[in-house]
Design a protein around this nucleic acid. Structure first.
Length: 275
DNA sequence: CTTTAACCCTGGAGGC
DNA sequence: TGCCTCCAGGGTTAAA
């Protein structure tokens, strides 16, 4: 369920508290995630100091001197800070015990992941899960021209292509619909047929949508470093079209339409987003 | 190469 | 109250 703004807020919350601190123990209570959690994680990591908490797409990267702990929150994952020794909640599957704070990964559906990537080869992003990801939306190299170029020869619907994450990462199912509404582009439009001028609108729309979510989320979670604060609680999302089927469009009052694309729900205004 | 669909899993909502 | 079906903000993987 977390989209990129939630993951980024989680990253900032973790980085502010535990970077530079020693990991005393990891306790894994459920090993079956998308892939099995490595059995000897505690032996691999205890006593090591977390150098930095990074992010690539929706993957959290906890960097240690001998490798990277890769964490993905999947559809239902969240990380929260707990008081030392606090009782376990249902679906608290992994405990991270640092010398100054404790965090827990809670994930009911277990679509997420916890993986260890040894840094023998140098590049921390050399893991196969990270190697083929699209560009970061806030990277200066993500431009309208780049977007336009990458859409060439893609016959699939623009919504599906945005969601695939091989052009730009971090645009999840909510913000794909929201970005296309803001850009006034029909989600069914063939990606390769979108002009450079319209790609400029879409590029701006993606950045504005993600930035707005980050700002509202950051203010919602301003206490995220406090002792009982959430690190990555889900934001209250201010959507214009997502989950608004049948409700009037904010711009023209036409009822919002819901369709299914690639087995995922898409919402749009059939009048504002005609092409 | 691009595109499509199955699949991993739990829980909440709504119909009956 | 229970049972059933559908749906969920992700993304890898195999197959076409």
């Amino acid at each position: 369920m977390p989209e990129l703004p939630e993951v980024e807020t989680t990253r900032r919350g973790l980085d502010a508290v535990i970077s530079g601190h020693q990991l005393k123990a990891i306790r894994v209570h459920h090993h079956q995630f998308r892939w099995p959690v490595p059995a000897n994680l505690n032996e691999t990591l205890q006593g090591y100091t977390l150098q930095a908490c990074l992010r690539r797409g929706k993957y959290l990267l906890l960097q240690f001197e001998h490798g990277v702990l890769i964490i993905h929150l999947g559809m239902s994952g969240s990380i929260r800070r707990v008081a030392p020794g606090e009782f376990l909640l249902k679906h608290d599957h992994v405990e991270f015990i640092f010398d100054n704070a404790e965090f827990r990964l809670n994930d009911p559906r277990r679509f997420g992941a916890v993986l260890w990537h040894p840094a023998k080869t140098g590049n921390i992003q050399s893991h196969t899960l990270l190697a083929n990801l699209g560009i970061e939306p806030f990277d200066p190299q993500f431009t309208a021209a780049y977007l336009h170029q990458m859409l060439q020869n893609r016959q699939s619907a623009i919504k599906t292509v945005l969601l695939s994450g091989d052009i730009v990462v971090g645009v999840g199912n909510i913000y794909a619909s929201e970005s296309l509404f803001r850009a006034r582009i029909n989600p069914k439009t063939a990606a390769g047929s979108i002009s450079l001028a319209r790609c400029k609108r879409l590029h701006q729309a993606i950045l504005q949508t993600l930035n707005a979510a980050l700002e509202s989320g950051g203010s919602t979670l301003k206490d995220y470093t406090g002792t009982n604060g959430e690190v990555g609680a889900y934001f209250e999302i201010h959507a214009a079209v997502y989950d608004k089927a049948g409700l009037p469009c904010k711009v023209c009052a036409t009822p919002i339409t819901k369709i299914i694309q690639g087995q995922r729900a898409t919402y749009y205004c059939p009048k504002c987003q005609r092409y």
